[in-house]
C-alpha cells in the first residue's frame, strides 16, 4: 500500500519542537499528497512521561489531524527509544521523508546523552527534514 500513496513520517511530542515538526509534516504531506504517520512514543520506563500523549491532549491531536483532511495514522509504541521507533516506521512504510523536531542541547549534553537526531540520521535511509520552529506562513 505504500506504493499507492507516498508516506510522510513525523516524530511528535507535545512541546514546541514537536508541534513545529507536526506543522511542517502536515505541509509536506499536503504538498506531496501523502499519508501522514505520526509517531508519539515513550520509553515507558518511568511512571510519568509527559511527552506521551494520553487522554484529552491525545483526543485534541486526533481532532486536529482529522480536521486537516490529510489521511493519517497515529502510532504510540512503548518500550524503545524514539530513534528506533522512527527508523522502524520509516522502513516499514517506505516513507518519502521523515520530519523531526530538534532539541537544543549543549556539546557536553550531547557527549553525555548522545543525540537522538544524530542516531536517526544514521539509521534512516530516506531524507530527513529537521526543524527548529514552525513553518513560515506561505500557504
Amino acid at each position: 500500500m505504500s506504493q499507492q500513496q507516498p508516506v510522510v513520517v513525523v516524530g511528535h511530542v507535545p512541546t514546541p519542537r514537536g508541534r513545529a515538526a507536526l506543522a511542517h509534516a502536515l505541509a509536506e504531506a499536503e504538498r506531496r499528497g501523502a499519508r501522514l504517520v505520526v509517531v508519539n512514543s515513550s520509553r515507558g520506563d518511568a511512571l510519568v512521561d509527559e511527552e506521551y500523549l494520553q487522554g484529552d491532549p491525545l483526543r485534541r491531536l486526533h481532532d486536529e489531524l482529522t480536521v486537516s483532511g490529510i489521511p493519517f495514522e497515529l502510532r504510540q509504541p512503548v518500550g524503545r527509544d524514539a530513534a528506533e521507533e522512527l527508523a522502524d516506521a520509516v522502513e516499514q512504510t517506505g516513507a518519502e521523508v521523515l520530519v523531526i523536531g530538534l532539541r537544543r542541547r549543549s556539546a557536553v549534553g550531547k557527549l553525555l546523552l548522545g543525540s537522538a537526531a544524530q542516531r536517526i540520521l544514521l539509521a534512516v535511509d530516506c531524507p530527513v527534514l529537521a526543524v527548529k520552529g514552525p513553518p513560515a506562513i506561505t500557504t
Binding site: G44, Q54, G55, D56, L58, R59, L74, Q76, P77, V78
Partner: peptide, 11 residues
C-alpha cells in the same frame, strides 16, 4: 480515558 490509548495496543 484509558480506552483511547488502547487503540495503539501498546497500553
Amino acid at each position: 480515558d484509558v480506552s483511547t490509548t488502547d487503540a495503539t495496543g501498546a497500553h
